[in-house]
């Protein structure tokens, strides 16, 4: 059974004349262990697809099943639990909280998940080690480079070892060297943790570098 199943997923914003269709009947599967790169131009529906997969938004119609869970029917509490345990998210803008050390950033999902305090330090250390930032654990974002900040964000996304890692243009704010390093890191984590990665990107070269499958989106649809 695929880890992710999307069936005729539609997402429309607004009403009447102002209605905009962001997704128009998207159907796709993502198998376990895949590294799927979703490509497409601005406004093609990539970010909407990402928000739906992350359980941050609901489809107007159609079904989304992740790890056997139907997200379109889930309650807000079930969606929160899904976000906490099933997925890890990496954003283009890193979204690190100012004033917190790298270790505290990585520990945040564990705090929300009510992981016992005694277990947190080991998990955080392992995650930081996985992204090669063990020695930067006590540094705040202002003391880290862009690439390091994104690696901290990746560590935060994988600290709970989620089966699905969602990356929304993770290299959008990085130079080419750091961008390659980050996608290589994601690829390595997929192999090491056995997780599935769905990465949105507008850089075909990066997609070719690490993705096991490329999906192109056009005008809210999966391009053939």
């Amino acid at each position: 059974m695929p880890l992710v199943e999307l069936r005729d997923v539609e997402k429309r914003y607004g009403r009447g004349a102002a209605e905009v269709a962001a997704l128009r009947g998207v159907t796709m599967d993502v198998e376990r262990g895949e590294f799927v790169a979703v490509l497409g131009r601005s406004g093609s529906g990539k970010s909407t697809l990402m928000n739906l997969l992350a359980g941050l938004d609901r489809p107007t119609s159609g079904t989304i099943r992740v790890d056997g869970r139907d997200l379109s029917q889930a309650t807000p509490a079930e969606l929160a639990a899904y976000r906490a345990r099933t997925i890890g998210v990496v954003f283009q803008q890193f979204h690190l909280l100012p004033g917190r050390t790298a270790a505290e950033q990585v520990a945040l999902p564990l705090v929300l998940d009510e992981t016992p305090p005694g277990e947190r330090a080991a998990l955080v250390a392992a995650a930081l080690d996985a992204v090669g930032l063990s020695r930067r654990a006590t540094h705040v974002p202002a003391e880290l480079s862009g690439g390091e900040q994104q690696r901290v964000a990746v560590a935060r996304a994988v600290v709970r070892k989620p089966p699905l890692l969602l990356c929304d243009e993770p290299t959008g704010n990085l130079d080419s060297v750091n961008a390659e390093a980050v996608v290589d890191l994601l690829s390595g984590l997929r192999a090491r943790l056995g997780c599935t990665v769905v990465m949105i990107t507008h850089e075909p070269d990066l997609a070719d570098r690490v993705a096991s499958r490329r999906v192109r989106m056009e005008d809210g649809r999966i391009a053939p």
């Binding site: 941050l56 807000p76 929160a80 976000r83 906490a84 998210v89 979204h95 909280l97 929300l112 935060r156």
Partner: peptide, 13 residues
């Protein structure tokens, strides 16, 4: 933005 992030990381309302 912090609230949004917390929710994305699994925080409930």
């Amino acid at each position: 933005k912090e609230i949004g992030l917390l929710k994305a990381l699994g925080a409930t309302d």
